[in-house]
Design a protein around this nucleic acid. Sequence first.
DNA 1: CTTTCTGTTAGAAA
DNA 2: ATTTCTAACAGAAA
Length: 286
Amino acid sequence: MPELPEVETVRRGLNKTILNKKIREIKILKPKLVRNSLAEFREILVGETVKNVARTGKLLIFEIAENTFLLVHLKMTGQLIFQSQNEKMMGGHPNPNSNDEFPNKYSHLIFDLGDGEQLFYNDLRQFGYLEIVDKARLLEIQAKYGIEPGTANYTWENFREILAKKKKTVLKSFLLNQQIISGLGNIYVDESLFWSGILPTRTAGSLTEAEAKKLFKNIAKIIAEAIEVGGTTFRNYRDALGGKGNFTDKLAVYGREKLPCLVCGTKIEKTKLNGRGTHFCPHCQK
DNA sequence: CTTTCTGTTAGAAA
DNA sequence: ATTTCTAACAGAAA
């Protein structure tokens, strides 16, 4: 479900709500989502506090101690939602942006933070995971991620270099590959290619210098804009307070098949490319 | 009713 | 080695 802007929005929400609150207890209702043994998972976390929540690509990193990190990947439908029971008891819904009540049938882990405060890990499709790792393992995992929009390694030089290394790869797959460029998913790949006027079926090596530069800039721009408005809620995505993202109304092609292109009015087409639904304007994209 | 689709990605197959 | 397909799962939409 969530791509870089959505995970970043969750990260920011968590940093505003759960930092330095002691984990009193953890209810684990779906053990398979935890990659450590349950005993170890509880042993390490209960009594600790989260010092900071960081992120690499779509992976959340809870900093627990010098050599202890809790990784959380939301995959398609994972949610991390903070709820304070106190506000609820004072009347009104605890989260002004949400009507959802928690826990629900998809709340598979519940972190008790004391004072009526809880953090829920919800996951309809149960593809996500939680895993405690040490620093060495964390670095190993982070090393597999490609350049990331919004960070220092996202430079034109580096972008040109990865394009040159994957000349024959179809752009859609190229942009979805987290080891090449991290953070993009199906929505933002389609949007970036649309605004760059490039068909998703083109190969990395087929781009002109001008096209490549345009794509490079548009990716950074679209990701930044999406973060600003709290990401995109197409179906299940919710932020750390249960709220929805507002980039949804700004989508130009994703989910707009058969609707007129915002730029030229041609009907947006949807095809399947490498197993992924792919949206594009047959007139604007060459 | 059945079939197809869904924001991810590890691992298998090609 | 590199690229494409499939499975993990539940539910909505066609």
